[in-house]
């Protein structure tokens, strides 16, 4: 499979969180637990794949000067559809992630992939790229969520294995920055070794 690298690139080489450092707001805000991180990642992936597909389809027909407003409209449409679907079928998840679902519109990853990849590639490649980057984003968010949940609440995906309260700071705002900072250090070390 020669196109497989479009998917794997999103994981390591183009990892949206640790290498490109894009979409930091949901990364920091929604990763209070592993499950929240996973759900946020999947929600973003949904928008990313669909907007990549549609934008690669319509790119040849869009005049250059109005391409950004067109892309933003397309992305906002999918985000609204996602909002409605989540409200209807997963209301509790929608409540937990709250503001950060509509804010997928301004997630630089989505517009970044539209502008930097989807408008120059075929539909299939764009879909694979959306899948790869989306999975990379989901994986990073889940990892940050896992670390914060273990340190902050002594549990993993809701399964409690350490009695007591855990280090609360890791569930609160400062922990988000600290965990992301230290994970980035580990990622840098890993890349340097390779």
């Amino acid at each position: 499979m020669s196109k497989w690298h479009f998917v794997t690139d999103g994981f390591v080489k183009n990892n949206p969180t640790f290498v490109l450092v894009l979409g930091m707001c949901p990364t920091l805000a929604t990763t209070t637990s592993a499950m929240n991180g996973l759900e946020m990642g999947l929600a973003t992936m949904f928008v990313l794949i669909l907007s990549n597909i549609v934008i690669s389809l319509i790119a040849p027909m869009v005049p250059d000067k109005v391409r950004i407003p067109v892309y933003i409209t397309v992305i906002a449409t999918f985000v609204t559809v996602l909002q409605l679907l989540m409200q209807a079928f997963t209301p509790s998840v929608y409540e937990t992630l709250g503001l950060f679902i509509p804010l997928i519109v301004v997630n630089c990853i989505v517009l970044g992939r539209a502008e930097g990849f989807a408008n120059k590639h075929s539909v299939g490649e764009s879909a694979l790229d959306g899948l790869g980057v989306g999975l990379g984003f989901t994986a990073s968010l889940t990892v940050i969520g896992i670390v914060r949940e273990i340190l902050g609440s002594g549990s993993l995906f809701g399964w409690k294995f350490i009695a007591g309260d855990g280090i609360l700071a890791f569930v609160m705002a400062p922990g988000a920055f600290l965990v992301l900072g230290f994970l980035m250090v580990l990622f840098n070390k890993y890349l340097a070794k390779k």
């Binding site: 869009v62 005049p63 250059d64 109005v66 906002a76």
Partner: peptide
């Protein structure tokens, strides 16, 4: 490649996109 950025094209394209998106939403 991309269609020419004439006023007519831009207006047409934006209106079409808005219409379709409005219909989808």
């Amino acid at each position: 490649m991309a269609a020419e950025s004439t006023l007519k094209n831009m207006v047409l394209c934006l209106s079409a996109v808005c219409l379709i998106c409005a219909a989808v939403v």
